[in-house]
Amino acid sequence: MMTSVKPSFTQSASTNILLAVVVIAWLSPLSWLLMTSVNPNASGGFVVPTSFTLDHFVTVMSGTSLRQFLNSLFIAFTSATLTAILAAFAAYPFSRLNIPYKNTILWSLALLRILPQTAIIIPVFLTGRALGLLNTGGVILVLTLMNLPFAILLLKNFFDTIPSELEEASYMEGATLYQTLAHVVFPLSRAGLAVIWFMAFTTAWNEFLFPFLMLRSDQAFPMAIGLYAAFGQYGATDYGFLTSYSIIYTAPAIFVYFLLKRNLTTGFAGVGVKG
């Protein structure tokens, strides 16, 4: 924007060179990942593969690592669904009813959102140990706990954009609360719910600290801990396996982002006002 008014040749050439440097700096890690994952003689160096194999991916999709993939999927899916349901049931009354100290509550939700995980990790561990919840179920509950404040905040703002006249009309027609919710409110807030769900899913999918603290066996690990346990200090590193593992672990996060991106633009802008 600064240079766009009338870019001289040297100016546009220098920005191009700068951008090229950026591309190389950011993409060489990605290209290393891709090249190594299909190289039968994978190593830590930057080697262009001379032959091609998908064996590493096949290895990842079997045995313990497949188990860890499914664990991640289960944890992220359950916690995202739980977050979305709980948040929807709390955010709707929050948006429609006059609750005392509404602003204070809004602010405390925002504050909880920026609270570092370390601030609650010790009580989480103590209750988990006392109640026998140092397992997948416990991890799901903690992740839901961590995601909930922000989810309620976002959904409340989303419900605020839906005109309440629609619900009023449905009441006039004789619909019960349940019918109004099921046929008017939730269909209109699909986009908002989708955003909440996907955000909670990605957060849970990426989470490291809580499963690291709460899970002990490699059969129970999600992919974050599985990957961490597999690289590092002990002996030779199997780069082919680890790069394939990384790609499979990263793919859903990227997929969800592009899904979410479309939802954000078409969903948030259009839905709700149309009615």
Binding site: N16, V22, V23, W26, L33, S246, Y257
Partner: peptide, 28 residues
């Protein structure tokens, strides 16, 4: 301001770093 041809490519490259889970970034 730039009319760089690979603009969307650049964007994807930066985004990849952000979207990759922390442990993947650590491993890389």
């Amino acid at each position: 301001s730039s009319r760089f041809r690979l603009k969307s490519f650049v964007e994807f490259a930066i985004l990849f770093g952000w979207l990759a889970p922390d442990v993947v970034a650590a491993f890389m």
